[in-house]
Every structure is written in structure tokens, then in C-alpha cells.
Computed example of a mutant assay.
Amino acid sequence: MNRSSKVMIGVGAAVALVVGATGGAVGVQLVTSAQIKNGTIQTVDLSPAVVRQLKQAGPRGPAGQAGSDGADGTNGAQGVQGIQGIQGPPGPAASDQLGALAADASSAATTVANIGGTFGKFTATVRATELDSFTLPAGTYQLSADGFFHSTAVVSGLTRLQLALRIDDGTDWGVDVGTCFTDSTSPLADRESSCQTTRVIDLAAPTEILVYAFGYADNQGSADSGKFQAVSHVSAIRVD
């Protein structure tokens, strides 16, 4: 121990050591480091009150000042340029696009050779007069057609003219993909009539559409054969 310091026993402003003898006077004196042998004091006892005060946290100090902003980091190295993509194939034709006009076919004026009797069979002879044909790719289409008919001579007035759209699938009558009829025509020459048809068709493969003109007389006769000319107009719009 440092001999120049004074050691106090206990806790307080000063520690008094009471020295006495039996029957004698009691005196109080301060104990200094000179009266203490090195190594004789092992611990210092603290009162419970002092221990509690030492364990109590002191008041929070004021917040420190905010640190200054750090220096900006260096820019990273430039990344490797990506590989240029391969250009895709050309887009589909207009007939493959939804809402596109896939077909727009108009026929020339053609004389309707046969009126009355049977329309005819694809497996034998088709008596109806072919006006036009066109092919559609696979897909779903709204098929719209109109037939315009014109009498070139005086007629019976009993004939109802027909526009017919068919697919030859190898059966007798083929597949009907649009049919319309006029009312009974005027008996006068140089008179006109028309009819319209709209159909949605679904084609699993590229398919030829055949357009025919025909007619039936109310008396089931054929006197008006060759006395009408027909013109067809057909449009197809891709819907799926």
C-alpha cells in the first residue's frame, strides 16, 4: 500500500477506530497507512444502502452529435453486355389473325343454268351453277355472303332463287356452310332480287369453300332455267 495515503475502515466521511482498555479511558484516532501492514486488509465492507445506491443507474447522458456522412464509394465495374436476341420468324398471314379479313371473294355475273329439280350430289352431278370458290386456312370464321340475281327475260314469277355455300367432304350433299333464298321473283324481265346469309364455321384444316346459285319454282317446274344471272359476294373474318 501507498504509505502516504490514509485508509478508512467502513464507509463515511471518516472512520473512527475505538481503542480502549478495561477500566480505562476510550480514545479515537485516525488510522493511516503507516499503522496498516501490507496485505492485512483483504476486503472493504459496504453497507446495504451504499450497495443499492451503486446499483442504481445514473441519469441518461445527452445524445451525441450525429456523425458526418461517409465518403462516397467507388463506382462498380460495368457489367458485361447481354447477348442480342435472335429475331423471331415473320408473323402469320392476315388470314391467321383474329378480326382480320381472311377472304373477300366476288364472282362474275353467271347464268343460272338449272332451276327446278334437285340441287345435285357431290358424289354424282351437281346441277347447281358454281359461281366461285376460295380456300380458308384452319380456324374459326364468320362467313357472310350475299347473292344478287337479275332476270334477263320474262319469267314465271314462281321462282325462288338460292345462294348456297358448300364444302365437298365426300358425302352426297356436302357440308352446308351458308344458304339463303329470295322471295318469289317478279315475272317481268330486267328485275332484281337478293338474299343474305351469315354463318360461323370451324375448320380443322385448310378447306375449299364452293359457292353455287340455284332456284326452285313453286310449281316444281324448270321453265325459268337460264333466265337469271347471279353474282355472289362472300367475306370471311377470323374469329378464333
Rank of each mutant, 00 (worst) to 15 (best):
V18L: 10
V18C: 06
V19Q: 08
V19P: 01
G20Q: 13
G20L: 07
G20Y: 09
T22D: 09
T22L: 13
G23Y: 00
G23I: 01
A25Y: 10
A25W: 05
V26S: 14
G27P: 03
G27F: 11
G27Y: 08
V28C: 05
V28N: 07
Q29R: 14
Q29M: 15
L30I: 11
L30F: 08
V31H: 01
A34G: 15
Q35R: 07
I36S: 01
I36C: 04
K37V: 14
K37E: 13
G39Y: 10
G39I: 09
T40F: 10
I41W: 04
Q42C: 04
T43R: 07
T43I: 09
V44D: 05
V44K: 10
D45R: 11
L46H: 11
P48H: 06
P48D: 10
V50M: 09
V51G: 02
V51R: 13
R52N: 14
R52Y: 01
R52F: 04
R52A: 14
L54R: 06
L54E: 01
L54D: 00
L54P: 02
K55T: 00
K55Y: 01
K55D: 06
Q56T: 15
G58V: 05
G58W: 02
R60G: 11
R60L: 14
R60I: 12
R60H: 09
G61H: 01
P62I: 11
Q65F: 06
A66C: 06
A66S: 12
A66Y: 05
G67D: 01
G67F: 01
D72I: 13
G73K: 01
T74E: 12
T74Q: 08
N75L: 05
G76H: 04
A77H: 03
Q78E: 12
Q78H: 10
V80H: 07
Q81R: 10
G82I: 04
G82W: 03
G82L: 03
I83N: 12
Q84C: 03
Q84S: 14
Q84T: 15
G85P: 08
I86E: 05
Q87I: 10
Q87S: 15
G88V: 05
G88R: 00
G88W: 02
P89L: 07
P90K: 05
G91E: 11
G91D: 07
G91W: 14
P92Q: 02
A93Y: 06
A94P: 00
S95C: 03
S95P: 00
D96Q: 15
L98V: 15
L98T: 08
G99P: 07
A100M: 08
L101S: 13
L101C: 07
L101F: 00
A102D: 00
A103W: 05
D104M: 06
D104T: 10
A105Y: 03
S106W: 02
S106K: 10
S107P: 06
A108F: 09
A108H: 09
A109N: 12
T111E: 06
V112F: 03
V112S: 04
A113K: 13
N114V: 15
N114T: 15
N114K: 08
I115P: 09
I115S: 08
I115V: 14
G116Q: 05
G117M: 02
F119R: 15
F119V: 08
K121C: 02
K121H: 08
K121L: 09
K121E: 11
F122S: 08
F122E: 04
T123S: 14
